[in-house]
Simulated assay, not measured.
Amino acid sequence: MKTEEPVRLVFVVEGRVAVAPYLDTVRSEVEDVTVVSSIGELFPLMAREAFNGILLDVPTLVRATSTEKAALYDLIQVFPTLRVKWDSRSATVRALFYDRVPGPGAGLGSFVRQVCACFVPRIIRRRDRVAAHLNVMVSETPAFSPEEVTRTVSLNLSLDGCFLIAVDPWPQGARLWLRMLEFDDQTPIAAEVRWRKPWGVSPGIAGAGVRFLELTDEQRKCVVDLCEQNRVVGGI
């Protein structure tokens, strides 16, 4: 007789919050749980190992950066995810569901048995960037004042972000707002500069790699379509 595989969850909780009674209570409900201390540790782990779901400690989530919270968005759309918080007075784990609650009095145990157990464990796949030469307007404020706008072109594109060609790139960590002229939805896209390659320092195209912090549903669909088609739009 084949033995069922245990439900595997990853638990994101900072070390200062991860007191022994908290972890023991979680482990009493989850047979196989891997603990990481930050959202930054979550992604490389989930790219290597398959999980049925995610537990997010609320205080850890509150202290996460806006970039980390934005990066979590796609994971939450795919993996069963539950926010949890340790109540030291009652020595219990409080559960906060993102969407439909599986039943009256539902908590961590029912989340594991009724939601995660039905989800096929999987790894996350790193998104490949595809060539996409889009006309982009860049502003350092969402107002897009004419005197502040830089006109440029993207070199590639993924759901996570893109590379913008620029001779004198914006500083690492800078917040930008983008408008891609090929998109029907011209809502400004909030983005953050993750890395930069200045002109003249080394061979190659100068510019900045940016991460999208927020996309509308229509913009997300447009990016997905472009990535799936793997074609160049509005070439330079």
Rank of each mutant, 00 (worst) to 15 (best):
P169H: 06
T81M: 06
M137C: 09
V149K: 02
E182H: 02
S66P: 02
P6Y: 12
S139H: 06
C227D: 01
A131N: 11
V12W: 02
W195H: 15
W177F: 15
E41I: 10
V78Q: 13
D74I: 10
S110E: 15
I39R: 05
F97W: 05
C116V: 06
V112M: 00
P146N: 10
R122E: 08
Y73G: 11
G200S: 05
S139M: 06
P59A: 05
Q172I: 13
V210Y: 04
S145W: 08
G234Q: 07
L55C: 08
R89P: 05
P188V: 01
Q229P: 01
T81E: 00
S158N: 09
K69S: 05
C222V: 11
L42A: 07
P44M: 07
D160W: 11
N156M: 10
F11M: 04
P44F: 03
T150N: 10
P104E: 13
Q186I: 04
V193F: 07
V101D: 03
Q114W: 12
K85E: 15
D185F: 01
R89L: 13
D184E: 15
F183Y: 08
I124R: 09
E49H: 11
V33R: 00
G200R: 02
A174V: 03
V120C: 10
S37H: 13
G209Y: 00
K69M: 12
C118T: 14
V167R: 15
P102W: 02
R100S: 10
P188H: 02
N156E: 14
A166C: 14
L82D: 03
K85W: 07
F79Y: 15
R94V: 11
L56H: 03
D32L: 10
S158P: 07
L108M: 07
L45A: 04
D74A: 13
T65H: 06
L42H: 03
S158F: 09
V30G: 04
Y22A: 08
S145M: 11
V84Q: 04
A117Y: 03
R89I: 12
